[in-house]
Amino acid sequence: MNIFRLLGDMCHLVAIIILFLKIWRSKSCAGISGKSQVLFALVFTTRYLDLFTSFISVYNTVMKVVFLVLAYATVYLIYLRFRSTYNSESDSFRVEFLLVPVAGLSFLENYAFAPLEILWTFSIYLESVAILPQLFMITKTGEAESITTHYLFFLGLYRALYLANWVWRYHTEGFFDQIAVVSGVVQTIFYCDFFYLYFTKVLRGSGKMTLP
């Protein structure tokens, strides 16, 4: 554990909590892509199956359980509890265009051709593109509430901190997880455009982020 990974995990946790509380308090999931949230729940489910096979640390186990619970709770709020507020017509990204290539790639490019390992690889590849339905929805509607942009900001910050973590681990431990690093770089790139809009629009102005 190093400071970058710890801060990264905390940003990830903050992002998920921000989203959950936003929906819970406003009793609305307007502007939120349910598809992205289902993909994240799928990411955590397929990655954290090792909860049953290997113990790493109390921290690791607790965080995995918390992420899983919050991911499914968020999906529950969007699709069941506050379903009437869900903008399904704006959430029109075709997730099969992500799932099929990601599933195919995880069979082709993995560390070991074993069920748990393929599922772990699938989760890594899927996480790198899981935010796309949300970004697509913002592009389509042309705006996002500031609280939604704070969620995306913390999610992007988590990714950026993980890149720093990998640089650190490479130099201190010689650790290099090629699949995670390549996917992580791809994932972080998706946030760059958003970061630019966040700093120029949301932080300087107030209220919603509107696209030019």
């Binding site: 995990d9 990655r47 090792d50 992420f67 650790f175 997880d177």
Partner: peptide, 10 residues
């Protein structure tokens, strides 16, 4: 190639 490390990150 041989798979040797645990996935210790979240």
């Amino acid at each position: 190639r041989e798979f040797t490390f645990q996935h210790d990150e979240l």
